[in-house]
């Protein structure tokens, strides 16, 4: 438990199932994330990690079970979906910055259009965020004009600008060249210490060990093991987990 974790649950998942046509991707996920908790999700490719975190802001629809985010149940109610998306920020593997907007406009789009912030206030907040990401000098450039590591930090700033209560990261460093990985991880580390609730899909085991409160191991659509990082890495219980850890650490 880190110093920020509380006992208040913020995401509650009950028996969550998901099918792509007749392919059963999530086979009953039941778990609770607490306010301020940092969870790292790992597991082999195709095990449903991305699908799981994407159900939390309804980029994917779950077909059975319940998901409650910050007291709001995810249903087919558009209003609930929009409310939850405002509370949940997401960072993608491929950054997905808007190429037709400058970096600062990428960040202010949500606050101006959704939070109805004034342009001036939104830009001031965006500049402060870019400062925090250590890329204030890139504000008026376009995404195509900056490096991958810088783009991912703009993407993090874009998500943070909505002042979300929860941040989802889907392999945020997998598309980066090795020398840029640490600049993104630094930012995420700083964010973790600020008390943000974070769900991070990643294979960066050093980051998991250092920052996570809990590591969850996905395999074929179920969580087969979860534990604090020290236990998880040094004393894994399942054969699959052992195999995965030894394979991942070799790299």
């Amino acid at each position: 438990m880190n110093e920020n974790t509380t006992n208040d649950p913020i995401i509650i998942c009950e028996d969550v199932h998901k099918w792509f046509d007749d392919f059963h991707v999530l086979k009953g996920i039941t778990t609770t994330f607490k306010k301020g908790e940092r969870a790292v999700i790992c597991g082999p490719s195709g095990s449903g990690k991305s699908t799981f975190i994407r159900t939390i802001n309804r980029l994917e629809e779950h077909q059975r079970g319940t998901i409650i985010v910050d007291g709001i149940e995810l249903s087919n109610d558009l209003r609930n979906i929009n409310l939850i998306r405002q509370e949940v920020g997401m960072v993608f593997q491929q950054f997905n910055l808007f190429p037709h907007l400058t970096n600062i406009k990428n960040i202010t789009l949500g606050p101006i259009q959704v939070r109805k912030m004034s342009k001036k206030a939104a830009e001031e907040a965006a500049l402060a965020l870019l400062e925090r990401m250590d890329i204030a000098d890139q504000a008026y450039k376009y995404p195509a004009e900056i490096s991958g590591g810088q783009q991912q930090r703009v993407a993090i700033a874009r998500a943070l600008a909505m002042e979300p209560k929860i941040m989802l990261f889907d392999e945020p460093t997998s598309a980066l060249d090795p020398e840029m990985i640490s600049e993104v991880l630094d930012v995420m580390r700083e964010l973790a210490h600020s008390g943000m609730t974070m769900l991070v899909v990643t294979h960066e085991m050093g980051f998991a060990r250092e920052v996570a409160d809990r590591v969850m191991f996905f395999d074929e659509g179920v969580v087969i093991e979860e534990a604090a990082p020290a236990d998880f890495f040094d004393n894994p219980q399942h054969e699959r987990t052992k195999l995965f850890i030894s394979q991942t650490l070799q790299h």
């Binding site: 802001n57 980029l59 997401m90 993608f92 808007f98 190429p99 037709h100 874009r158 998500a159 909505m162």
Partner: peptide, 24 residues
Amino acid sequence: GQREAARSVGLKESQVLRLVVVPQ
């Protein structure tokens, strides 16, 4: 990914279309 990013900052479908998809 562009639509997904736009949705995940909370834009409504009409805003996703008008502010992100159509300009591109």
